[in-house]
Amino acid sequence: MNHTSHIIRFAVVLVAVIAGFFILRGFLVPDSFGVQGDYKYGYHRGASDAEQAALPALYTGSKKCAQCHAAETAEWQAGKHAGVECETCHGNWQAHNNNTKDKAGKDSSIEACLLCHGEVEARPADFPQIADMKKHVEDGGGAYEKGMLCVACHSAHSPQQ
């Protein structure tokens, strides 16, 4: 009499489970999955690259802005803020383009200017910083008034000094 039939039965069950796993795996792993480049750093779902590349860009750079705002662009390029992109102060182009009435990006408050030009120890020493508004105005030969804005003397688009 043969006494291994129960072992064969268990083996069959085990093999069936393992085979089931690999069949399931065949169905569930995306087609583009595989090694692209090397296995260490390139093992992934290939379609993922394109999906991420397709996301929309919200910040587009000043060229887009110039299409409608030629005069401001020319003014901006002539001043000391020429190296600062429109979107740095005005927010991203896409938000503005979605709703051109939205002027939220237009801020001439003193805080908006001091975000960059307030005096902070960690800022580079040669970067223009204002510690005391009154002193700054008087040093420049002006008459200080309470609540005075920077734009009273400086053009935000095109500061000359």
């Binding site: 590349a53 996301l55 929309p56 860009a57 910040y59 803020h81 979107e87 960059c116």
Partner: peptide
Amino acid sequence: CYHRVLKGLKPACVTVCPV
């Protein structure tokens, strides 16, 4: 900003950095 870089733009942080 992979989606920007592949379009020839700079990453958003680089674009807006004023200095």
